[in-house]
């Protein structure tokens, strides 16, 4: 089932997203308020009929740092006090890629790629690293023992380890010392029919939706323009795909 967000500026079609029926209201340029019309029935388990994914258009002239900021704000990141910069958590980062021979360069946001065959899930000894039925890869911090094997296995360096005691976490993103964490595709927002924070901040350059629904905007875009996966050679089939890389 597909529905569209009502909004004046129809040319910004990338804001339209898949099977979540939501009504959006533009209150200021770039700021959208979403009101859930009929989000998933939260009394039922997430279903494998849905596979959430993202399509990131790297050719768009977007300040990807806004996505990082939105992520930090949404998940209450950045509250480490003692950790060195290389120990601090980053769910999403901006990677600058440059071709040495041609001089061509671009930047793109990289986060957990929510693989269909996630190596982090395979290697986790306790099953803390898990893939929800709808394709979102999560860390169950109730089970995580902090062995960091998933960090060794992830080809995207998507995971961080919490190196110190944290306070003042966000209610929707519990996180603490000794556990591994990563982008959770803003699962709490998605469940409530909202867009992930980075998608909302991307000015339409990231399209979010149901990859299993051929009528969803992300599927249509992928069908028309195609999408590329980082390290596609590993055949992990990430749910996060790119255009222009």
């Amino acid at each position: 089932m597909t529905s569209k967000i009502e909004k004046e500026d129809l040319s910004r079609r990338n804001f339209i997203f898949g099977s979540i029926a939501a009504a959006g209201l533009t209150v200021a340029p770039g700021v959208m308020l979403y009101q859930t019309a009929n989000a998933r029935d939260l009394s039922k388990a997430a279903s494998s009929k849905v596979r959430w994914g993202m399509l990131i258009d790297t050719s768009r002239d977007v300040d990807w740092n806004k996505c990082v900021e939105a992520c930090v704000k949404e998940h209450g990141l950045g509250n480490e006090e003692h950790s060195r910069p290389d120990q601090r958590t980053q769910y999403i980062r901006v990677v600058e890629v440059k071709n040495k021979s041609t001089g061509y360069s671009m930047s793109l946001p990289v986060m957990c790629q929510h693989c269909e065959q996630p190596p982090c899930v395979d290697v986790c000894p306790t099953g803390a690293s898990m893939k929800r039925e709808d394709g979102i890869v999560l860390v169950d911090r109730h089970r995580c023992i902090g062995c960091r094997y998933c960090m060794m296995a992830c080809p995207y360096k998507a995971r961080s380890f919490v190196h110190e005691t944290l306070t003042d976490q966000s209610t929707t993103t519990p996180r603490g010392k000794g556990c591994v964490e990563s982008c959770n595709m803003c699962v709490n927002r998605v469940d409530n029919g909202q867009l992930p924070a980075c998608v909302e901040a991307s000015e339409g350059a990231i399209v979010f939706g149901n990859l299993n629904d051929p009528e969803s905007d992300i599927s249509k875009l992928l069908a028309k323009h195609g999408g590329k996966q980082i390290r596609a050679d590993l055949k992990l089939n990430p749910g996060v795909q790119y255009q222009g890389i």
């Binding site: 944290l166 976490q169 209610t171 929707t172 519990p174």
Partner: peptide, 24 residues
């Protein structure tokens, strides 16, 4: 250690700074 110990958005919530003296 992971969950927030007071309601969200309550007065002393400031996500970008921590509490130096809190030692769980």
């Amino acid at each position: 250690q992971c969950h927030r110990d007071i309601p969200e958005g309550s007065s002393n919530f400031h996500a970008l700074s921590g509490h130096k003296n809190t030692d769980f």
